[in-house]
């Protein structure tokens, strides 16, 4: 009889252990620059780190000094399209904003609005022509033209086996002279991630 009791107890306990897990939610606020890797996918920390490194390389490139000595002013830069050719959905808009922020804060270049932003601004300027006073209205055809456009591309390579995965993210960026189409600066930044998924967990 003891055997039967023990068998029933084990059967019941094992199943309850397996099936009666409960879920709960807890939220903790953390610093926005704290590094948190959950899934191993591209995240805000990667975006920020690449943007910082890229801008550091950009403003220390020879092209900047050359332009200043030739033109006697800071170059005017615009961030163009950063395409995603990786196998992950990367929020390139976040990355573009990170780049813009770093460039503006560096004080080394003059920065102009992107094409989408310019459309909004032009609409506003047109609206001002009929609605704002003459003294406060923004003038049409007085925009600052960009000298250079910064473009880029994300790619990734994945190698995986037995629950282990290595993902190499590569961000290639180029600064192109808008007038001559000359590439004046090129750099790339890699982020390699090793992700190991445990095959077993309780």
């Amino acid at each position: 009889m003891k055997k039967l009791n023990v068998t029933l107890f084990i059967l019941g306990t094992l199943f309850l252990l397996g099936s009666c897990a409960t879920t709960s939610t807890s939220v903790d606020r953390i610093a926005s620059d704290e590094v948190v890797d959950l899934s191993g996918r591209w995240n805000d920390t990667d975006s920020r780190l690449v943007a910082e490194t890229m801008v550091d390389s950009l403003i220390n490139g020879r092209w900047l000094g050359k332009f200043r000595s030739e033109e006697g002013r800071d170059p005017v830069v615009i961030v163009g399209y950063i395409s995603n050719k990786s196998s992950e959905h990367i929020e390139t808009a976040t990355f573009t904003k990170d780049i813009e922020r770093e460039l503006v804060n560096s004080g080394e270049v003059t920065f102009v609005a992107s094409s989408n932003e310019r459309l909004q601004l032009r609409e506003e300027k047109l609206d001002q022509q009929g609605n704002a006073t003459e003294e406060t209205m923004a003038a049409l055809a007085a925009e600052t033209g960009a000298d250079f456009m910064l473009i880029g591309v994300f790619t990734s390579q994945t190698d995986a086996a037995e629950g282990k995965k290595v993902v190499l993210y590569k961000v290639d960026m180029e600064m192109i002279d808008i007038e001559t189409n000359q590439k004046v600066w090129i750099d790339s930044k890699d982020i390699k991630k090793y992700i190991e998924r445990s095959k077993n967990s309780w």
Binding site: L11, L14, F15, L17, G18, S19, S39, G163, R197, S198, K199, N200, S201, W202
Partner: peptide, 16 residues
């Protein structure tokens, strides 16, 4: 993707 990690307790549950 996450379920690549097997739950030992649920594996036992499925075995029983």
């Amino acid at each position: 993707e996450e379920l690549y990690t097997n739950s030992i307790s649920k594996s036992i549950g499925s075995a029983v």
